[in-house]
Amino acid sequence: MVILRRLTGILLLLTACGGSRADEPLTLLTFDIPPLVNEQEGRQASGYAYRVVERMFELAGDEFRLEFQPPKRALRSAMELPNTCAFPVDRSQERETSLSWIGPVSVSRHGLYSHPDRPHPIATLDDARQWSISSYLGSGVGEYLQTQGFDIHLASKPYLGLLMLQANRVDLWIADTRAAPLIARAQGIELNEPELVFFTTLRSMGCNTSIPQERLRKLERALLTLYRNGELADIIELAP
C-alpha cells in the first residue's frame, strides 16, 4: 500500500509538472521603464520592448501573464520561480548562467547624465571614476561599473537615480538614453544631453532555467523570424 501510494503520488506529480509545462502561460515580470515598457492600469503595458515580446509570443503561439515588479525583484523572481521570466533585463556574462535567455528584445545605449548646473565633461569612461554615480538595483550596467570599482549608488527604481542627481547626492546618473528624457519629463526635471553615451547592452527576456528548452527555443525562433522579416526594424530604433 505504501508503495502504491508513493507511485500514485509520483504519477500525480509528473502529471502536474507536465500540465504546468504544456498548459500554463508563462509569468512575465516587467517594470515601468518608458519607452521600453510603460505600465498601464490593469496589468496592461505598452512600449516597444513589450511589443517585441508580445509579437514573439503571438508568432510562437504561446501565452503569457504579465506582472509588474521592481527590476531587482523581477530578476530574482525569474531566477527562483518556475515558469517565470523577466524582461527587459540587461544580459551579461555575470548573469548568463543564472537564467535562460531570449533576445534581444531591445538594445539600449546607456548615458552618463550630469545635473544641468553641475556639468562634468567626460571623454572616456575612465574620466567618470572620480564621480559618484546613481543607477538602479537590477541594472546590468550599474553592476558592471561596480565590479570595475566605480562609486555606484543603486536606487530601487530607475527614476529614483535621477532624483538622487537632482538632490545633489550623486554627480552623475546612468540611464538608457531613450528612457532618460521621458523619466526627466515625468519628474518635471530639466536634463541635458548625456556627457557620454558609454555602454550598450542587449536587453533580453531572462527565464527560469527549469522552463523546458524546447518551449524557449520556439520563442527564440519566432523572435529571429521577426528580426529577419524586418518587422522589428520599425519597433526597435537604435541611435548610432
Binding site: 544580459r91 551579461s92 556574462q93 555575470e94 548568463e96 533576445g103 534581444p104 538594445v107 558592471y144 550598450t200 542587449l202 529571429l224 528580426y227 529577419r228 522589428l232 526594424a233 526597435i236 537604435l238 548610432p240
Partner: peptide
Amino acid sequence: TGEDDLVKKIRAQMDTGLNI
C-alpha cells in the same frame, strides 16, 4: 566587456541587422 558578452553582441548584430 566580458568575452561572452562580446560573443552575444556580435551574434546579435548578425541576427538582427541592427548597427549595434
